Simulated assay, not measured.
Amino acid sequence: INANDMDEAALQRFQQNQDALSSALSRLMVVVEKYPDLKANEQFRDLSSQLEGTENRIATARRDFNDAAQQYNTHRNKFPTVIVAGLAGFRERPYFTAQAGSEVAPTVDFSTEK
């Protein structure tokens, strides 16, 4: 996602998709809790590893997006650029903000003992 091409409506849709993905992953982890055999499956372990990598890439992309938006906004707001930008219709770019509480991963107990 390019910060220069993102308007507020597109960012809102992007955030909604990210929130839906986080919700789906949380539900998957709840299902896994109920099926201990699934936790021991090698394919599930591979999936868990891939999900962790995906979450890391998403966090990196969010940070890069916000860095690009901040860089754009800083440059746009410098004098005399701010005058020309205002006349030409260049607005500040919005930042990505995650859903409240999304920084805390759901607690999942992979132990087979209950």
Rank of each mutant, 00 (worst) to 15 (best):
Q16S: 12
A9D: 08
V32R: 01
A10I: 09
T74G: 08
R63A: 07
S111K: 06
E52I: 06
D64A: 15
A85N: 07
E92R: 10
E42K: 12
I1E: 12
Y35W: 09
N56I: 04
R62I: 02
D7G: 05
F14P: 05
Q18F: 03
S111W: 00
T107S: 15
V84C: 11
N4G: 14
S22T: 11
V84H: 10
E8W: 01
G89W: 04
D109W: 05
Q16L: 13
L87P: 13
S23R: 13
A40R: 00
L38A: 00
M29T: 07
Q18C: 09
L28H: 03
F65R: 02
R45P: 02
A9Y: 07
N73H: 06
L47Y: 00
A24W: 03
N73F: 00
D7L: 05
E103W: 09
Q71A: 14
S22W: 00
Q50L: 14
M6K: 02
L21V: 15
S26T: 05
D37S: 14
L25C: 07
D64N: 13
F79D: 09
E8Q: 08
L25P: 02
P94G: 05
D109K: 08
R62V: 04
S111T: 15
Q15R: 10
A100H: 02
P36W: 02
S111L: 06
V104A: 14
Q18G: 03
V108M: 15
N2F: 04
N17P: 10
N77S: 14
A10T: 06
V82K: 15
R13L: 14
G53T: 11
E8V: 08
A10D: 06
D7H: 04
A24C: 06
P106D: 04
L87K: 13
R57V: 07
S22C: 12
R13W: 07
V31R: 12
F44R: 03
V84W: 06
R63Y: 10
I1F: 11
F65E: 01
K78G: 09
F90S: 02
P94E: 05
G86Q: 13
N41V: 01
L25A: 05
P36L: 01
T74I: 05
Y35E: 13
K114Q: 10
L51F: 12
N2H: 11
P36R: 04
E33F: 03
